[in-house]
Design a protein around this nucleic acid. Structure first.
Lengths: 205, 205
DNA sequence: GTCTATAATCAGATAGAC
DNA sequence: GTCTATCTGATTATAGAC
């Protein structure tokens, strides 16, 4: 009995998971492309190829929909950061994180963060998955920043928190889109340029 | 006749101008606070203290409303830049521009630029007042950037256009809001921190 | 769980009296 | 030009059959 039942429900759950993955993927692309306000639930449904009402069986609101995509993004960031060698120089790891963020962004996979007052912001603030990921990432990066400052590799005149925010801000840096729009630079060049402005600044050295 | 008529129409026009200034001021604050999509025409009307229908006698659409505020901002920037001493070192003038932008932003007077696909973007692109200001500002800044690069004060490894975009991007830099939100820094400290990250970078020197 | 059809709401824009 | 009242369309969300 259970030998036949268990695979059956497992299969169903797998299909459900696949469907939800497809939804989140579509949401992620739309968030990256036009942001939360401009994205409509109709678009999401159309892109996934299901009816809008079906979406609401999986997620109870537009905010939940977006939150799911953003939480997935945070988890990925957490995984990437967790996979970095803790014995490596902290500055190197920090550069790797920014490089990774820029690559995700250049690939059009970076969901827009709610920089201003938005219903999404409120939803995220009470989402413990989101907040946990955010805290975990912040802690890890902050330790590396402090270590790099102690070693004299990062500026000791800048507050640690300001450097942390600067790294986070790269997720929504409009310079990337600007440079991409012109079409005069490859993705690798854009990555190098933005990395250089963050770490070395625009002044000559 | 004309001696009594002229002041009369002039007075009316002045009142009209004052009213439109009040509208644009309200729009500017709302754009700075919540951005174009989140701002509603009802809010603007309420804040100015007139009926929504009256707004539409002055501006024919929400986009026009926002464009007027943004164009005023561009004009102000143009005036500020035009008032800088052309004999001063170019790097000094560029720093003054960024400092001014940050001060406007910290005062809550920086209307959010349409970084992503938006109906406002399209409106601005065909608004010759906006485009003219943008071109004038870009030209001026670009010349200073090139001059500073030639003098070896700004990095010669970075494309001029990338530096220009970086300066523009400070208008929508979320780090400013983040640092402001925490309440641990004064406006002057925030200005200094952000200026330092832009020009000197986060690396130690 | 998925669909079609529809409710409910909200925001941009307008009509028409004054 | 300003107002009140209204229209129109878009968008989030749900009802109910299958």
């Amino acid at each position: 009995m259970s030998s036949t039942d268990t695979p059956k429900t497992s299969f169903k759950q797998r299909m459900l998971q696949v469907r939800e993955d497809a939804i989140i993927h579509a949401v992620n692309r739309l968030l990256a492309e036009k942001g939360f306000e401009a994205m409509t639930v109709d678009e999401v449904a159309a892109q996934v190829g299901i009816a809008k009402a079906s979406l609401y069986k999986h997620f109870s609101s537009k905010e939940d929909l977006a939150a799911a995509a953003i939480v997935r993004g945070m988890r990925r960031a957490q995984n990437f950061i967790g996979g970095l060698p803790s014995e490596a120089p902290p500055l190197e790891n920090l550069r790797a994180v920014v490089r990774w963020l820029l690559e995700v962004k250049l690939a059009g996979d970076m969901p827009i963060l709610p920089s201003q007052s938005s219903s999404l912001r409120a939803t995220l603030m009470v989402n413990s998955d989101y907040m946990d990921s955010l805290m975990a990432i912040s802690d890890r990066l902050e330790k590396w920043i402090e270590a790099a400052q102690t070693r004299g590799e990062l500026s000791q005149r800048l507050p640690t928190i300001a450097i942390l925010f600067t790294l986070f801000a790269c997720a929504s840096d409009p310079v990337v889109e600007f440079l991409q729009m012109g079409g005069r630079f490859t993705d690798e060049q854009i990555t190098d340029i933005v990395l250089a402005t963050y770490f070395e600044g625009i002044n000559a050295r």
